[in-house]
Design a protein around this nucleic acid. Structure first.
Length: 475
RNA sequence: GGCGGCGUAGCCAAGUGGCCAAGGCGGAGGUCUGCAAAACCUCUAUUCAGCGGUUCGAAUCCGCUCGCCGCCUCCA
């Protein structure tokens, strides 16, 4: 399996530190507002990576943090007249709600910065003791010059960084490029006691402290949006490696942006589309399929039309569930229903795996699954036309297909449809039976009338040689 | 200014040296069907922004030109 490593800008063979085990950390969100579809992309990209590693048989430990103390949180909380922690708690709940709606699995550990202040202080003390950091008036800064590898991840030239620095120069710093590890408290701000006085952590230190706390001083994968490469991840490497003297992370993975129109979506530009809004109009699987159609490192442009296309594409898979379920209830969902897939299906599974092994190429992997769907549909047609020998191939192929779709987080629930009330179900079944009777007596007018009536209830009726099949997709 | 990315069919999007350039959406024709829906089959890029070069061979490597975008500041 190959992974594109931002550190080397090449695809590298993936070799975890401990055989059979993967430890990964992904930078989560700063909780001061609702999440937008850019956050959704990052979450889904790493959700798929994590699922695929699990599928490959690795024991995965996945950590995703919450930044719950920060300038923006403090400012927003002050504006709304609520406590900072109260505000961050609220948006953590909102985040979890959004992730659940998107079918993104929870991380194994979801640490909050405010609950790991002690680990941060300990790390900062190590840095000060090692001569990598210095305290000024209750602030503590990391001294960039003491860490020559600074700039390696983002390929920044330190001299140019200095020349191009647009930040206002803080005279107390030894070097304008030095960054804050600890910030002295201003009146009214959340603060914790520390050897340098009351204050709060700088942004970067939390991820170093929490990732090493849960995953060890060296671990396998660290991810996030590509905007985090500099300065965030650059600073994390500096702090962590200066503190421990050990390599911090083996593989750095960064996802591309979601653009709105031609422009990057960002809160500071004010052009954001909340996940909350999007899931009102589009099925989670449609959004996921849309995103996975583009490689995770490439930019992707949001549009309603793209999402609708994805929803139509999804319909190539869906009818197979209902049919497989009718022939052999439970086959699709259950793991122990080990059916032998026909050889054309297993060949496509190999193609799926080869694509995913190549830096998680979900676009290519999906192509294999659409091809697999075509194969399974052909078996389905054969069964529908009375060829009983195709039955096993159909069921085996279908269970293979949906097992692989689930690796991408699609069709998680085997029979995804809204809850159908028993009374409505009874009513529908009565109409379908009535229509069947009309068809038997060749009363086509009546049959078509009933089809129209059913359609108004959200029911699609398909006539097959083995009888009429109906599906309900809500009204 | 520095660093990086992108430009592939009507639209979206894989492919980064060599079988006919994946797949999806859309479109055209056909099979099946009482009608229909779904599905299946066939077709829909002699060509990969443009121009030069390297090579037996390039969408893929190199150079130049044009166009678009990101990072360098909080940001997934």
């Amino acid at each position: 399996m190959k992974i594109y490593n931002t550190l080397t800008r090449t695809k590298e063979e993936f070799v975890p530190l401990t055989p059979g085990e993967v430890r990964m950390y992904v930078c989560g969100v700063t909780v001061y507002d609702l999440c937008h579809i850019g956050h959704a992309r990052s979450a889904i990209a790493f959700d798929v990576i994590r699922r695929y590693l699990h599928y490959k048989g690795y024991r995965v430990t996945f950590v995703r943090n919450f930044t719950d103390v920060d300038d923006k949180i403090i400012r927003r909380a002050a504006e709304e007249g609520v406590g900072a922690l109260q505000m961050s708690d609220r948006y953590i709940r909102e985040f979890r709600e959004d992730m659940a709606a998107l079918g993104v699995l929870p991380a194994h550990v979801e640490p909050k910065a405010t609950e790991h202040i002690a680990e941060m202080i300990a790390l900062i003390e190590r840095l000060v003791a090692g001569g990598f950091a210095y305290a000024v008036d209750g602030d503590v800064y990391f001294e960039i010059r003491r860490f020559p590898a600074y700039g390696r991840l983002s390929r920044k030239n330190l001299e140019e960084l200095l020349a191009g620095a647009r930040v206002e120069v803080d005279e107390r710093k030894r070097d304008p490029r030095d960054f804050a590890l600890w910030k002295a408290a201003k009146p009214g701000e959340p603060a914790w006691p520390s050897p340098w006085g009351a204050g709060r952590p700088g942004w970067h230190i939390e991820c170093s402290a929490m990732s090493m706390h849960y995953l060890g001083e060296s671990f396998d994968i660290h991810g996030g949006g590509e905007d985090l490469i500099f300065p965030h991840h650059e600073c994390e490497i500096a702090q962590s490696e200066a503190g421990t003297g050990k390599p911090f992370v083996r593989y750095w993975i960064h996802n591309g942006f979601v653009n709105l129109g031609a422009e990057k979506m960002s809160k500071s530009l004010g052009n954001v589309l909340a996940i909350r809004e999007v899931v009102k109009r589009h099925a989670p699987d449609a959004l996921r399929l849309w995103m996975l159609g583009t490689h995770y490192r490439n930019p992707i442009e949001w549009s309603e039309e793209r999402a609708q296309e994805a929803a139509r594409a999804l319909e190539r898979f869906r009818p197979l569930i209902a049919d497989a379920d009718r022939l052999a209830p439970g086959v699709i969902g259950s793991r122990d229903a080990a059916l032998d897939a026909p050889s054309d299906a297993t060949a496509l599974r190999s193609r799926f795996e080869a694509a995913m092994d190549d830096d998680f190429n979900t676009a290519e992997a999906l192509a294999a699954l659409f091809d697999l769907a075509r194969v399974v549909h052909a078996y389905r047609n054969a069964v529908a036309h009375g060829d009983d020998s195709a039955r096993a191939a159909f069921l085996g192929g279908a269970s293979e297909l949906f097992a692989l779709l689930r690796v991408l987080g699609l069709f998680e629930v085997a029979t995804t449809h809204p809850v159908l009330l028993p009374e409505l179900r009874g009513h529908i079944e009565k109409l379908v039976a009535e229509r069947d009777a009309a068809r038997k007596s060749r009363d086509w007018t009546r049959a078509d009338q009933l089809r129209t009536q059913l359609k108004e209830l959200g029911v699609t009726v398909e006539d097959t040689p083995s009888g009429s099949v109906w599906t309900w997709r809500g009204v």
